[in-house]
Design a protein around this nucleic acid. Structure first.
Length: 569
RNA sequence: CGGUGAGUAGCGCAGCUUGGUAGCGCACUUGUUUUGGGUACAAGGGGUCGCAGGUUCAAAUCCUGUCUCACCGACCA
């Protein structure tokens, strides 16, 4: 490609609304432009990267025996009514009507369509197992799109769906996908980790997420220092403290605490260790709880884990915090003065709270706390559950080492779905014995467009992007200096360009009439991994200069060596 | 959906308090200059000041409404 006949679209200045580095660089390097909130146009350079990412994904998927299809973005509402997700899915599902006033949705995912397809097309056990995938645009009306294509509303995703007669067979495909995903991210040159994950609203049992590690990641991941254990913090189990609860050492006392509405204020004003305080959180209860509310207790320095809390049968789904007004009318005190003693609604305490003694908590009267509360003596120990987020330094759930927390960008997610969709939509085949059997499914997603952003988060410096070779928009930048004034340089550049292009190398030939500094700066911003600079000085010796974008190393090459050198990289 | 803030040239911003001919830097065009790291000088093109209504002789500026965008929070595959 000649830059004079291309749309480079690089910019010096960073638009004000780009927060994370990948978003800034994608705009500056001319990869994307925003059309509206969460909607982006892919410019030629960005599309080249996107296509390379998609190509690797397609290649590795095909290698495992998965077969590519392409399903519509617009889907009829009946399918969603059939699976039950027309009601289940919230406002994130964009619903539209056609000219006949029939309901449709813009597909946020394709379980319904694929299940319907397989139901119609597959009728015998002999056709199984089957793994179908597509690389397609998805639309999710995100509450808060941000970070450019990292969390856009419209995005490109690879989604695969496998169909099986038995769980063992699903298990095997799941493992194959796990391995394929590792291969994909390795080929792209990304630092990633598979972690145990929550299945969320897609449903199912076993699930892993694949995270690209980066400071700006939206998810927190817990790793063991000693073992292979890695899980999304949402899922990482917080073990019960290994030490027994100690006995009471002091009488419970009621204390006036007019200026202590938060744990921090309580700790500061009353010289109470934070590990001796308890937070009382009030959430909406599920329908079978009469009180309508449930109290969740975690230690003062711990955080409630919403995913874990939502799984408790007493807690309403989705997890909803009670408003101050609801709390006052049900409990007679404000949120800053709540505690377990005398609380008239069901209580669930975290494992760490159950192990506490002589602790302080609200007295369920405004501006008063009880200090030196002890379970059993002052209040019965209620139901105990794991409802907090793990923290750095907590013991690993597998018993080996302690946890460390890092941030990650979720770029892949694999699920063992089971029969959630196949059952709801009656997707089955005849078995060997002639009986109808509902199929077991797996589903496997990769955020293709998100990978582009994630790769930049991991590969950049102050000059711009540094693409891994496998996903670079161009592998090589050909930079002639003052070509418009020198026939020798023009001749050498044209010849190299022909030669490299014919050898199948993606070359960006910067033939613009620009100053050297402008060209260097643009090629670095674009992140092209390998640069060849042609100048008068070196041409006298029949040489050009090679420079690696990543390492910065430079050396001279004979003109005749260039092709072989690049091919050997 | 709640809180906060912002909409003025392609991008980044000033002007608004105190109403009176719309500005700066970058980018773009032309010329000269420069030529291995975003040259310098000169001349130019480009704006219904988000939109609608109101006040006024006069509105980017004051008032009302509305739309859009961003950040924080809640929420979320």
């Amino acid at each position: 490609m000649r830059s004079s006949q291309y749309l480079l679209a690089t910019q010096k200045e960073t638009p004000a609304d780009a927060e994370v580095i990948s978003h800034q660089l994608m705009l500056r390097a001319g990869l994307i432009r925003k059309l509206a909130s969460g909607l982006y146009t892919w410019l030629p350079t960005g599309l080249r990267v996107l296509n390379k990412v998609a190509g690797i994904v397609r290649d590795e998927m095909t290698r495992t025996g998965a077969i590519e299809v392409l399903m519509p973005v617009v889907q009829p509402a009946d399918l969603w009514q059939e699976s039950g997700r027309w009601e289940e899915y919230g406002p994130e599902l964009l619903r539209i009507k056609d000219r006949q006033q029939r309901d449709f949705v813009l597909g946020p995912t394709h379980e319904e369509v694929i299940t319907d397809l397989v139901k119609r097309e597959v009728s015998s056990y002999k056709q199984l197992p089957l793994n179908l995938f597509q690389i397609q645009t998805k639309f999710r009306d995100e509450i808060r799109p941000r970070f450019g294509v990292m969390r856009g509303r419209e995005f490109t995703m690879k989604d695969a769906y496998s169909f099986h007669l038995s769980h063992d067979c699903l298990e095997k495909t799941y493992q194959d996908m796990y391995q394929a995903y590792c291969n994909i991210f390795e080929r792209m040159g990304l630092e990633f980790r598979p972690v145990i994950a929550d299945t969320g609203s897609i449903g199912g049992s076993m699930s892993h997420e694949f995270h690209v590690l980066a400071q700006s990641g939206e998810d927190a991941i817990a790793f063991s220092t000693e073992s292979e254990f890695a899980a999304n913090v949402e899922m990482a189990e917080a073990l019960a403290p290994s030490t027994e609860r100690t006995g009471p050492t002091a009488q419970m006392q009621l204390v006036d605490t007019p200026h202590a509405k938060t744990i921090a204020e309580l700790v500061e004003q009353f010289n109470l260790p934070v590990e001796k305080t308890v937070k009382t959180l009030i959430v909406k209860a599920s329908d079978d709880i009469e009180a309508g509310l449930v109290a969740l207790l975690v230690r003062g320095d711990h955080e409630l884990n919403g995913v874990k809390a939502e799984k408790l049968s007493q807690v309403a789904t989705p997890l909803t915090f009670a408003s101050e007004a609801e709390i006052r009318s049900a409990l007679g005190a404000g949120p800053g003065s709540l505690g377990p003693v005398g609380l008239p609604i069901p209580l669930i305490v975290d494992r760490a709270v159950a192990a506490m003694s002589d602790f302080g908590a609200g007295a369920n009267q405004d501006d008063k706390h009880y200090f030196n509360i002890n379970w059993e003596r002052d209040v019965a120990l209620p139901q105990v559950a794991d409802i907090r987020n793990v923290q750095a330094g907590d013991p690993s759930p597998d018993g080996r080492g302690v946890l460390e927390i890092k941030r990650g960008i979720e770029v892949g997610h694999i699920f063992q779905l089971g029969d959630k969709y196949s059952k709801a939509m009656n997707c089955g085949v005849l078995t060997e014995s002639g009986k109808h059997q509902v199929l077991t499914m797996g589903c496997y997603g990769i955020g293709v467009s998100r990978i582009v952003a994630a790769a930049i988060e991991q590969n950049h410096d102050k000059f711009g992007i540094i693409w891994p070779d496998a996903i670079a928009p161009f592998r090589l930048a050909l930079i002639p200096m003052n070509m418009h004034k020198s026939h020798r340089i023009q001749e050498a550049a044209e010849k190299l360009y022909q030669q490299l292009t014919q050898a199948g190398i993606d070359v960006l030939f910067d033939d613009r009439k620009e100053r050297p500094g402008v060209m260097f700066a643009d090629m670095e911003l674009l992140g092209i991994p390998h640069h060849i600079v042609i100048g008068e000085r070196n041409l006298d010796d029949n040489r050009v200069e090679y420079k690696s974008r990543r390492s910065g190393e430079k050396h001279l090459l004979e003109l005749e060596q260039v092709l072989a050198f690049i091919q050997a990289l």
